[in-house]
Amino acid sequence: MRPKIKDVARLAGVSPGVVSLVLNNSEGARVSEPTRLRVIEAAAELGYTPNRLARSLRTQRTHTLGMISDQIVTTPYAGRMIQGVQDAAWEAGYLVELIDTAGSSAMEAAAIEVMLSRQVDGILYATMYHRVVEVPEALRDRPVVVLDSETGTDGTAAVVPDEVEGGRTAARRLLEAGHRCIGHITEAEDVPAARLRLEGFRRTLTEADAFDESLIWTDHADSAGGERGARELLSRPDRPTALFCYNDRMAMGAYRAARKLGLAIPGDVSVIGYDDQELVAAELEPGLTTVALPHYAMGRRAAALLIADIERGKPNRDDENQEETAAGTTLEPCPLVERGSVGPPEGAATPKGGPTDI
């Protein structure tokens, strides 16, 4: 027969109310440490666990988070982002329910209905890549954090990679290696990731008096687009000695173009990617130096922000309670992952000392 709270109270020599205070970690409960330990030991001896359904009815919480994504589970990053969410949730006593909508608006509406019917305490609204989204109306009075996207001006809390600083990081690394003629192959579609990475890249090279607008190539953000861009840039008489690619797939195409043109990496041309896709960056020869998207860190941060607002009992909105919520955009740093695709320009001496002051 399953032990009840009164059995724990009898064994510990306290009232059932004290047992409830201890096992629910009630804030402000005045229970001495010896009594608390006695209750915990009694519960462990009897194999007693609190009734979560009863607790949820009493606290109006289910200690579950809903995670609705468009196509995350089909991307190379899914595991790291979901793991980050799950780790932060588990550490705080929450479980995660995930529904991937495959980009279908009808499936998204059904997913939201299911999540709300299950009374999840808050929603993580996640997307496959950094872009601007509109939070569904059905979620607007709920605790919500948008993951890997932004919502424009509506003030919903969002966690995104620091794309500007990522672009600056790539540019700094190439300048430090001694490069002054640097090309950028980027996404043709006007998405925040492409725009902000270019902004950071342009700002850093402009500060070093090394930016050349004619060395910017836009194309499809895949290996074919990267190959086309690299072939055009590297065929110029004044070809760049280094390339910064919008993502690792474009960098993979740049490798192909360089090889077909008889150029060695990094001896003749250095290449930096973005994303740190493990099945691409680490498998190229030489390994691709790239700026990593911090998917695990973003997942953890988003879950922590959501849980914090759930515990406060406040929706994640930019309103009169802004100072009490996580409203606004949180930027996660994008670290540089060094491999073997960056070296000094041909004929240049290897730079000595630390990073340049840029």
Rank of each mutant, 00 (worst) to 15 (best):
L234Y: 05
G273H: 10
R239M: 08
R312N: 05
P345H: 02
K314N: 12
V280G: 01
R259Y: 05
L293H: 13
G340T: 06
P294V: 08
D309G: 11
R339K: 08
E323V: 14
P345S: 03
F244T: 06
L243C: 12
K314S: 14
R231W: 11
P345W: 03
L261K: 07
G229E: 12
A297C: 00
D318A: 13
D319A: 08
L233Q: 11
G287K: 06
G226N: 08
G340D: 10
L306E: 04
G343W: 02
L331R: 14
I265G: 06
N316T: 14
P240I: 09
E232D: 15
D238C: 09
E323A: 15
L279G: 13
G226H: 08
E227H: 10
I310D: 08
I265Y: 07
V280Q: 01
A349E: 14
A254I: 04
A257Y: 11
E311L: 01
M250W: 10
E283W: 06
E227C: 10
L306I: 05
G226I: 06
C334E: 15
R236M: 10
I310K: 05
A258G: 03
R339S: 06
L233M: 14
L306H: 04
L279H: 13
P345T: 04
A257G: 10
T290S: 15
R317Y: 00
M252P: 00
E311P: 02
A292W: 13
G273M: 09
D318R: 13
E324P: 00
C245N: 06
L243W: 11
G287Q: 10
R259I: 00
S235W: 03
T330W: 11
Y246S: 15
D248P: 05
A327F: 03
M250Y: 10
A254N: 05
G313T: 04
C245Q: 03
M298L: 09
E283L: 12
I265C: 08
R256Y: 08
R259N: 07
A327V: 05
P266Y: 08
P240Q: 10
A349R: 08
L336P: 04
Y274K: 08
G262S: 11
L234H: 02
E311D: 11
L234G: 03
Q277D: 15
V269T: 11
D238L: 06
T290K: 09
A308I: 10
A304I: 01
A326K: 04
V337F: 01
T329Y: 07
T330F: 11
E338Q: 11
L243I: 13
M252Y: 03
T241C: 00
G347E: 01
E320N: 04
V291T: 07
G299C: 03
E227Y: 06
P344Q: 05
